[in-house]
Amino acid sequence: MAREQQLTKVFVEVADSLIDDFDLIDFLQRLSERCVELLDVAACGVLLADEHDVLQVLAASDEDTRLLELFALQYDQGPCVECYRSGRPRTNIDLADPNASQAWPQFTPAALQSGFLSTNAIPMRLRGRVIGALGLFQTRDSTLSDADTALAQALADVATIAILQQRTLAHSETERGQLQYALTSRIVLEQVKGILAERWQVTPDEAFAAFRAYARSHHHQLSHLARLIADGEFDTDQIPRSPRHR
């Protein structure tokens, strides 16, 4: 598909989601997948700062625990942390460059070990404040052009808008409240991955795949369904354990 067509698809998806009741984590995950396609990168993650100024993964293009842990490693070091602190994008960072392993001694080898050659971090900004970062990884020797970076920034802005848009309560919800709700939703999802993994004797990744397939096909919001499961208010036997992957 030509990039223009892909972009059109993304805009339609975004518009559809934001005018309706949508699930933030699911939306951000789809957005991460689109980032991978549009920017021709191998992996993408959306990281949001919590109340301790620690970056937490809200969603990633691939829910593989290994990738999530790589993003999570950036809680105190890595390009996303620097991008979050400076508010400026960091693009085309060569992970094989000795400077990279010197600057981020834990993050860099872990990223290389996962097969990534370079990485990028794009700030998520909200009215002059930085609230998180978009992390992009490449496995091939390719660079992001200025146009790619501008597009990545636009997608990061869409992610920010989505976070603020997720729950339009009738009351005076604050932006910080929205951020808090987003982070809490993600934690509930991780707890539920564990619950389902143990009930079904599968890995958390497999449990999540089955859970998400069920939620999507039954038009449940991921976060809402996760909450019901965590509270013991949903019979998880209703969820088929081996979803069709294709």
Binding site: H52, V57, E190, Q191, K193, G194, A197, R199
Partner: peptide, 29 residues
């Protein structure tokens, strides 16, 4: 946790990790 994120090995900071949340769910079952 202490100020500036400085914390003992077993601290509230550990409660920020996805793997801890997953393990919590598994142990509950």
């Amino acid at each position: 946790p202490g100020p500036n994120g400085a914390a003992p090995a077993d601290s509230a900071d550990a409660l920020l990790h996805a793997v801890v949340h997953q393990a919590t769910g598994m142990v509950s079952v």
